[in-house]
Simulated scan of single mutants.
Amino acid sequence: MAYVVGEGGKKMVLSSAAKKWKDFKSTLTRQFILPFANEKEKSKEPPQLYNFIEKSEWDAFVASRLSPDFEAVHSE
Rank of each mutant, 00 (worst) to 15 (best):
P46A: 03
Q31W: 05
P46V: 00
K55Y: 07
E41V: 02
K55M: 10
A37E: 15
K40F: 01
Q48C: 05
F52I: 05
T27P: 00
N38Q: 14
N38L: 12
K25H: 14
T29V: 07
S43I: 15
S56M: 03
K42A: 13
P47N: 06
Y50I: 01
L34G: 00
E39D: 15
P47V: 06
Q48R: 13
P35D: 09
F52A: 06
K25F: 11
N51D: 14
K22I: 06
N38S: 14
F36C: 03
Q31Y: 06
N38P: 02
N51H: 13
F52W: 13
P47M: 06
S43V: 12
A37R: 14
N51G: 13
Q48M: 08
F24K: 08
L49R: 12
F36V: 02
F36L: 05
N38T: 13
W21R: 12
E41N: 07
L49V: 07
A37S: 14
P35Q: 08
S56Q: 09
N38K: 15
F36H: 15
T29I: 09
L34P: 00
R30N: 14
Q48P: 08
E39K: 10
F36S: 04
T27M: 10
K55C: 02
P35E: 08
E45D: 13
E39V: 04
K44L: 00
S26C: 06
K42V: 05
S56N: 11
I33L: 08
K55F: 04
T29W: 10
S56P: 02
S56D: 14
I53K: 02
I53F: 05
T27G: 04
E41S: 09
L28W: 03
W21H: 10
K42T: 06
S26G: 11
T29G: 03
K25Y: 13
P46C: 04
S43M: 12
S43A: 06
P46E: 04
E45L: 10
L34D: 04
A37V: 12
A37K: 15
E54Y: 05
Q48W: 04
A37H: 09
E54C: 04
A37L: 10
P46S: 05
P35H: 08
Y50M: 11
F24M: 08
Y50G: 01
D23A: 15
T29S: 12
E41T: 05
K55A: 11
E41H: 05
Q48I: 07
W21C: 07
L34Y: 04
K42E: 14
I53G: 01
E45I: 02
S56Y: 03
P35K: 07
F24D: 07
P47C: 07
I33G: 00
R30H: 13
F32M: 05
L49T: 09
F52R: 04
W21K: 12
F36P: 01
W21S: 10
S43T: 09
R30A: 15
K42W: 03
K40L: 10
W21I: 09
K25G: 13
N38C: 06
I53T: 06
K22G: 05
P46R: 02
A37Y: 09
D23I: 03
F52H: 08
I33S: 00
P46L: 01
Y50V: 01
F24V: 03
E45W: 01
W21L: 11
E45C: 06
I33A: 05
L34A: 04
E41I: 02
F32E: 00
S26L: 11
S43K: 04
N51K: 11
W21G: 03
Q31N: 09
E39H: 11
K22S: 12
K25D: 12
P35L: 07
